[in-house]
Write a protein that binds this DNA or RNA. Structure first.
Lengths: 343, 343
DNA sequence: CTGTTAGCGCTTTCAC
DNA sequence: GTGAAAGCGCTAACAG
């Protein structure tokens, strides 16, 4: 492991491997081996190189290394969401923290690729294929992203959230169906009989799956599953959807909301109509990524183990970069209900 | 040697400049010139190269280019905050969006550097000095960060938020002093006379400056400036600080809180004591980066033009990378009060 | 275990 | 305007 440059003479120019080798009294190749794992290097040479590195404050030039190995030592985090909303969401922060943790002590650097507003959809894919990074983590793919198709057979990619076309792809997800079912079952167990849902953006599998879970629980209990509104993750949209739903289904007594952030909007709508939670309407959200914790009063929700998901995704990615023969890996983590009194 | 290369067939391997040159019927140097601005290239050659590039789907290898030019084509966004809180904050999201926007159509890629928990403080600095990136944007530096010192005289760096040691450094900031003054003056104008403040982490200039603005307004009005508590940006800390302050200063009738996020905690404390806003206590926050907008009831606050700050920072950085002779640039954007009824 | 020898793909003098 | 040639700093066979 290369040591940083606290020591060493300040030359203005970064020292090269050649200089290290000379300083250590060995050849460049020996120095190189010593740096990369120390295979077939005598303890003596190793020590000399280590010392030289420390003395000079040497740090290997990534570009040169990448050129020689055709491994860039960097992985991309792709945010295919051109939408402003996404970047306001605690989701992205979780992803960032997870990737970052997963990358600790891996010598890899994180390249952030965020979709720009009017940018051609295939641009990111071509960036990835151009070999500028060794692999990528794609956060929350949407139906219609070019990403999935273009990524096939190129550098390894791991998706956060199951992509629409998932065969042959690596991804990590939370069990959204089970989460939706758990939440809805909880409402049923609480004695609610007219249970609606405010869905997220239905071009994402997460939203579809949560809806499916809701539906499954209701149909298992023989309850009606027609109280559906929504279609967009977003506070205002959720607020409007709630109003629409209440207009249509006045006897509603519970709501499963596809995300905690959306629940903010739902609560506003309920408040506007002087409906109490959980008195009039029981409420369960999804995610538990921050908003739910800070809400007063609390919001019962389904825990989305995002941090772990992302860390796992990073691990899978690094494994596949290390060994390209590895088969794709799909991992679905269990969902868990977190009680906070809104039921 | 891999077979193929004559045709634009998909070889699995990315095409090289050599292949482009051959395809275009020119030398590698001419192809290179054509790609980089087209100086001293005949229109005919230019067209041939362009066509070849399109046909082959060529994209220059960044590593090779970096090696040849000693310009990596990537800039770092440094988050020197090992603290979990920071990554829960809308601040980081604003920074991300700003940098990202500033980088549109600049061919630069964004490398994210987030401090890890137990990581030696100088590690980031040495990464930056190692020449892995062409420059860096440092978000919200703390007193005691090695960053400022180590950065001196190396690659260009622009700080978001004035660093403690600011001479000779480029930075962009909002006028925090004026913001604190504006907020406090607004409280005074509303007839409040016992005005306290809950401060942020005082190892950041933003927190210190906001406090100074508060103090300035009070002393100009001849009001006491001893109602100070806090010391950490953070919801729980702010909540606790508010309790302490109310214990100590029971006749408090207004509060300037160093951030909107902290105001969440402040409100909890007030609510716990059955104090109304603005009836009993008038409240003004700082930032207007999201939390304030979603709060019910609304929170009057000071607008932090973060997005613009960061975009400007990015511009300054790119300018300095392009022309290293440029002198450091400091930019302080005006603060502005946003009324939302909590006064 | 070690040094020599070739490149990795690109830019850049420098002659022509 | 163009091409030949020389690297940028590193790794990776391959002999010793």
């Amino acid at each position: 492991m290369a040591v940083g440059g606290e020591e060493g003479t300040v030359t203005g120019r970064a020292p090269t491997l050649d200089e290290v080798a000379r300083e250590a009294g060995v050849s460049r190749s020996t120095a190189s081996r010593a740096i990369n794992g120390g295979e077939r290097v005598s303890p003596k040479a190793q020590a000399a190189v280590d010392a030289a590195i420390a003395r000079l404050g040497f740090s290997p030039n990534r570009a040169a290394r990448a050129l020689a190995t055709s491994h860039t030592g960097s992985i991309a985090l792709v945010i295919p969401e051109p939408d402003e909303r996404f970047l306001t969401d605690p989701f992205l922060l979780g992803v960032l923290r997870g990737v970052n943790r997963g990358l600790v002590d891996s010598e890899n650097q994180l390249v952030l690729l965020i979709a720009h507003e009017g940018q051609s959809p295939g641009r990111m894919a071509s960036f990835l294929n151009a070999g500028h990074v060794d692999g990528a983590i794609v956060a929350s793919p949407h139906r219609g992203d070019q990403i999935e198709e273009t990524m096939r057979g190129s550098r390894p990619v791991v998706f956060i959230g199951r992509p629409f076309v998932s065969e042959g792809m690596s991804y990590v997800d939370v069990d959204n169906v089970e989460g939706g079912r758990l939440a809805t079952q909880r409402l049923i167990d609480a004695g609610r009989r007219r249970i609606g849902t405010i869905t997220g953006t239905l071009d994402m599998t997460a939203a579809l799956d949560r809806l499916e879970g809701w539906r499954a629980a209701l149909s298992a209990a023989g309850l009606p599953d027609d109280a559906v509104e929504g279609g967009q993750f977003g506070i205002e949209q959720a607020e409007a959807a709630t109003h629409r739903l209440l207009d249509r289904v006045p006897d509603l007594d519970a709501l499963f909301v596809a995300s905690d952030t959306m629940a903010i909007g739902v609560r506003r709508a309920l408040q506007a109509r002087s409906l109490s939670v959980p008195g009039d309407i029981a409420l369960i959200g999804f995610d538990n990524l921050g908003p739910a914790e800070n809400m007063t009063p609390g919001l019962t929700t389904v825990d989305n183990p995002l941090l772990m998901m992302v860390q796992e995704a990073t691990r899978i990615l690094l494994d596949r970069i290390r060994d390209p023969q590895r088969p794709p890996e799909a991992l679905v983590l269990p969902a868990r209900l977190v009680e906070r009194g809104s039921v």
